[in-house]
Each structure stands twice: as structure tokens, then as C-alpha cells.
Amino acid sequence: MKKFFHELNKGIFIENPTFRLALGLCPTLAVSTSIVNGFGMGIAATFVLLGSNVIVSSVRDFIPKKIRIPCFIVIIATFVTIVELVMKAYFPALSKSLGIFVPLIVVNCVVLGRAEAFASRHGVVKSIFDGLGMGIGFTLALVLISAIREAFGNGTILGLVIVRSFEPALIFILAPGALLVIGVLIGIVNYMTDRCYTA
């Protein structure tokens, strides 16, 4: 059990996809403009990660090495399309604000990266925990970034105005603000992890 917990913890902290591996930054930059968007994107990516990890690790002995990448892509694309269709049908507003970035989860390097680096080499149960951990790590990072951006850039939290007199700095909602926030957060997280592990 401890081993599984390690896999879970790994994705959330030690190898956080956004802050430590710096993977999947494109959707992170694009959709982290409000907490709702960030959370929605995180959950969608978690579902795809979990699904593709399970399938990839369970068929890993059956797929020849030479054609593994196309197979992985097909598996991932299937899950992404499921997410896209379900989102369009039941959460039209979210689907509209995430736009092209839902189908683009296919090329999110976190998903293919985990399939290739982990799920294709480990058992199903371990892969479930790996996928969950990475997904939660990605979601937490997205929510953190989007909370900061929404608060500073729009003056709101979950769409609620914080203080009327605060004049939001629009830059945080736009692309340069995303880069600034991610840069500063990566700096802080690396500083903290270094201190935790060298001390």
C-alpha cells in the first residue's frame, strides 16, 4: 500500500507535472483564467490520464514496441473525444470557454508522457495511482494558478467580487500574466522542494 501511496504522492508533489516537470504548459497558460475553467480542465485531463493509463498498462504486453506510440495516441484520443462529447452535452458553458483546449488534451505531453514512461512499464494498479496522482497534481496546479490570475486579473474568486475598490490588473488575465504567475510559482515550488529535500 505504501508503494501505491508513493505513486500518488509523486504526481502531486515531487514530480508535479506543471511545477516540477514543466509539462502540459500550453493548456495551463491558456485556460487558467478563472477557477472554474482551471478546475474543469484539470478534471478532464485527470479522466483522460486515468483512462489512458489503465488501458495502456493492461494492453502493454499485447502491443509490439515498434507501434506503441500510434496505439497510445489512438487510446488517448478516444478518451479525449469521450470527454469532449460529454462536456458538450452536459456542460456547454464550460465546453465553450475551454474551446479548442479540450481536444488538444490529446497532445498534452503529461498524458502521452505518463503512458510512455510509466503505464507501459508498470502494472494496472500502480498505473491507476500514477494517473490519479499526476491528474490531481495537474488539477491542483491549474486551480492555484487560475485562482491567483482570477483574483489579481479580474478581482473575483469563483466569479464573486472580492473588494469593490480594488482595480484588477488586467495583465494577469492575459497571456503575459500567465507566464509571470507560472514563473514565480515554479520558482517558489523549486525553492521549497530544495529546502525540504536537502535539509
Binding site: 502491443i63 509490439p64 507501434i67 500510434p70 496505439c71 489512438v74 487510446i75 478516444t78 473525444t81 469521450i82
Partner: peptide
């Protein structure tokens, strides 16, 4: 073998997606 594996993977994917699509289409 490669062709067969890829074909099977794609077939499974297509079948699943067809199912999901039929369910969600009226809603969309």
C-alpha cells in the same frame, strides 16, 4: 502483426466512440 494490432485498437476505439456519440448527440 503490426497491422492487426493497430486495426484492433482502432476498431475498439471506433466502437466506443460510436457508442458515446449516439448517447450524447441528441443532448448536444
Amino acid at each position: 502483426r503490426f497491422v492487426l494490432v493497430l486495426f484492433l485498437v482502432n476498431l475498439a476505439a471506433a466502437a466506443i466512440l460510436a457508442g458515446v456519440y449516439t448517447v450524447t448527440r441528441p443532448k448536444i
